[in-house]
Design a protein around this nucleic acid. Structure first.
Lengths: 220, 220
DNA sequence: GTCTGCTATTTGATATATCATATATAATAC
DNA sequence: GTATTATATATGATATATCAAATAGCAGAC
């Protein structure tokens, strides 16, 4: 007996819009119109509205004074502010995960590493982003701290759309996996401090590759 | 010309329910019924539903498999998981605030300190909670990092209801202000590391006072 | 030409109606 | 009596209708 599962429409609308955001479907400052979205998803306005409200609460969308709901522009400043928060929390999660990772987890991480290396050769940006996310969260999940994990997830949602451009940088693509390898090595040695340091460096290097691509300030 | 401002009903419903949560009006595990809330606030179901959804997204409420929406029980485990996250972020915010605090800010903080001392004598728990919050956020706001501030606000919302019981502890009430004084002293000396350390201790001591009052695990 | 004010249209906000599911209650079988 | 089923009720989920604010378009004044 396979449990059939029901998912409310607002949840699904949320997911749809979210992946749209992550894939950069919606241009910043272009308003998301409730009725339009409702029609294009073939559902009524109510669940769409709820999904948008939720995204606003998570700060993935913002409400203009006109009440229009738009994608906020990720500026260099905002990204720079997000970075130390992510470094602190993802570093913490990594450290916490060290004593809880079993050899099987390490093996799985090495598997991801191999696949990431593959994407650098095939220039498959989408696969890279997917695997990069999987790599990080396989570690964070092992922190055993659900509250911490939830906050980190929220932060990744915010920076998600920006990451899309990560693979465009030649230099980054070639070195994308370097820190990842160091992280897994440290994890395997059960060296929590080193694992944390490598994770922090990974985040910082990615941020440095991305920052120049971002606009200095929000458009007026 | 004073700008008249409009606030959507869902925002106000959100605020109302939120203060209800903070004041412990809604018992954990008791379902919040949309129609009932709508009636008691004299508005329709839609804005209430949106407010509840938002609170669920922020994890201040949870959806049961039955789809009922209830106040989650704050367990000792959850609180313990929240603590290191708060320590890291609020410590960071404190450190960032140090070079940005002007003498006027320090003076204002001293003023809050005095008023907090007053509440300990008059046993005014509500005033204490209010002032304690104000004290902390006056500092965090000065971090200049809006993203960080937002995350911290979210964390405070989660622990808010628990804090209500803080003042019941005799020992805590007498020493509630001790660390605060140390924090301000450190801020005045522009000693970022010390300010951070004192802030971390303040959070930890409060947590230690509260933890025993929490249930060890969630009810089944 | 620009500016002003009017009208129409778009779009968000709210209320209501309807549907589906879950819970409670009652009735029946045993 | 308990267990089981049927029915009624409560409640969440969705769709639709209505209202209100904002925007766009247009006509006339100058």
């Amino acid at each position: 007996m396979t449990k059939i599962e029901y998912q409310p429409l607002n949840d699904r609308a949320y997911q749809e819009i979210l992946t749209g955001l992550t894939n950069g479907i919606f241009a910043p400052m272009q308003p998301l119109v409730i009725r339009t979205l409702a029609e294009s998803y073939g559902i009524s306005a109510t669940p769409i509205r709820e999904a948008l409200q939720r995204l606003v609460a998570e700060r993935l969308l913002v409400v203009l004074p006109n009440r229009s709901i738009v994608v906020p522009q990720m500026t260099r400043e905002k990204f720079a502010q997000l970075l130390p928060v992510r470094v602190a929390l993802e570093g913490m999660a990594t450290e916490l995960a060290v004593p809880r990772l079993i050899p099987e987890d390490i093996a799985r991480l090495r598997g991801i590493l191999d696949r990431i290396a593959g994407t650098a050769k095939t220039f498959d940006a989408r696969a890279y982003l997917q695997l990069n996310r999987e790599f990080h969260f396989r570690i964070y999940e092992k922190s055993g701290n659900e509250e911490l994990l939830h906050v980190i997830q929220g932060l990744w949602l915010k920076v998600g759309p920006v990451f899309t451009g990560l693979f465009d940088s030649d230099h980054f693509r070639r070195h994308a996996n370097d820190e990842h390898v160091h992280i897994v090595d440290a994890l395997e040695r059960r060296d929590a401090a080193a694992a944390r340091a490598c994770m922090e460096r990974d985040l910082t290097l990615a941020a440095e590759a991305l920052m120049p691509r971002l606009q200095a300030r929000a458009a007026p």
